[in-house]
Design a protein around this nucleic acid. Structure first.
Lengths: 251, 251
DNA sequence: CGCTTACTTGAGTCTGGTCAAACGGGGTGG
DNA sequence: CCACCCCGTTTGACCAGACTCAAGTAAGCG
């Protein structure tokens, strides 16, 4: 819940960024890369469980996840927690804190994470001098909105089983496109409590639901890890078409 | 469900826009207004119940609501409907259709609506020549995200009563800041089915829940209309702080 | 070895869902 | 003018999915 991370100078130059080599990310122009490189003020490395951004704060930074897993969530005053979405490499976080006065959600690391740090003060300069990048940022915000719409549909209209199937297919699908499959089979480093807090279900009922998915050979579960065994089965069960992941920008 | 609307030339010049006079909207520079005026390609007037944008389409337009009420929603193939958010004057809609390949949700009018029409093809020009406006568009997208986060928390973690209270307070609060209170007391032109589809509840249970809110004198209800009678009571019941509505751009 | 974290499982309860029916007002065709 | 219908709302009876409470297991760690 607490814990910090280590700031460090730039270790990786943006031009060398390994993430950028992936096919999902659109190729950037030379001058765009140069600007981003200047825009980048450092790297932040955080431990599993560390809080990267906190609700209510007015963060001076904007981050792009480079590696690892995290999640965005909100808390109610009485402690109820709702996980809003998961953070994976290539995702931009903290935009709200930069644009509006303060963050309206928190972000926590699910695994060790490496983040690229940008100064919010330079954001407007980006808008002024690099319309293409500005457009990209809007595009990323719009994509986040799309994911939230999808999650909202799920919470509102799917049954527990459908929701669980949807969620796991959703996370696994995203993870795959950004190469979060270090282990084989690729595993999602998550706790049943996280799933419960995402689906809007109790821990106990989540457990029973996941158990059924395991029995149907759709997924497998081991402590703090979930792996997809039958993606199509999950999609069918959730009555979901899957996300159309298109080429996208990496700021 | 079907129905069209009438396109019309510009009736109102952006400089004369009555919405813009409201205190919630930040004052624009002369040149910004001039650009927006050129960017605006017309007005669209739609009837109650008309579909403004449809999921899966690749719209050539982008709209700003000028007057009236609407809502964004998604459908599952088997007909389940989830309302994602409500559209009120000043809201920008159709951005997804402009940035991404296609809309991932539909928009329907709850009342007659007047919309300002922009050409998606000119959007990039806006980014190129008016970084301030580009920034504003991102800001609006970010605000939408904030509202979705809030709705997600509600669906996931609030009880039926809390959800209903939250929703009505949320809508009424937003409506007030943009002056959607033609009638007195201001009424939300909505059906219990809409509420149910927003809250993720059945129609029957929604009815019973609303009935309780009426009995507690928190709201009043008449056919197709809901009015807040005790805003603080609703906020307390929902354990919600309300939205901090700050000055915002109107594109 | 004892403690903690994460996952399991069972029993009983309750919130919210489904089914069915009815009401009231507005509109329409006869 | 009246009968009829439709839409939105209301209510009751019954059912089930999800919640809470309570325990227990298994793995990891100091």
């Amino acid at each position: 819940m607490t814990t910090a991370g280590t700031h460090a100078g730039k270790r990786i130059a943006c031009t060398q960024c390994p993430l950028r080599k992936r096919a999902v990310f659109r190729p950037f122009e030379q001058d765009e890369l140069a600007f981003i490189s200047r825009f980048k003020s450092g790297e932040l490395s955080v431990d599993q469980g560390a809080t990267v951004l906190v609700e209510g704060s007015h963060s001076a930074h904007l981050y792009t996840a480079l590696s690892g897993w995290g999640f965005r969530y909100k808390l109610m005053t009485d402690g109820r927690r709702q996980i809003l979405n998961y953070v994976m490499p290539g995702d931009l976080i903290g935009l709200q804190g930069s644009l509006m006065d303060e963050m309206s959600h928190s972000v926590e690391a699910l695994s060790p994470m490496l983040l690229c740090v940008f100064e919010r003060d330079h954001l407007f300069e980006l808008y002024r001098n690099h319309p293409g990048l500005a457009y990209d940022i809007t595009w990323l915000a719009s994509r986040e909105e799309q994911m939230l719409d999808e999650n909202l549909l799920s919470l509102g209209r799917r049954t527990a089983m459908e929701r669980a199937a949807y969620l796991i297919a959703f996370i696994a699908g995203r993870a795959e496109t950004v190469g979060l499959n270090d282990s084989n089979p690729p595993e999602i480093p998550i706790t049943q409590q996280h799933i419960a807090d995402t689906l809007g279900l109790s821990l106990v009922h989540t457990n029973k639901t996941l158990r059924k998915l395991v029995q149907r050979h759709l997924i497998s579960w081991r402590e703090r890890g979930c792996a997809v065994r039958d993606m199509q089965g999950l999609l069918d069960l959730a009555r979901w078409e899957g996300m159309k992941e298109t080429v996208r920008p990496l700021v």
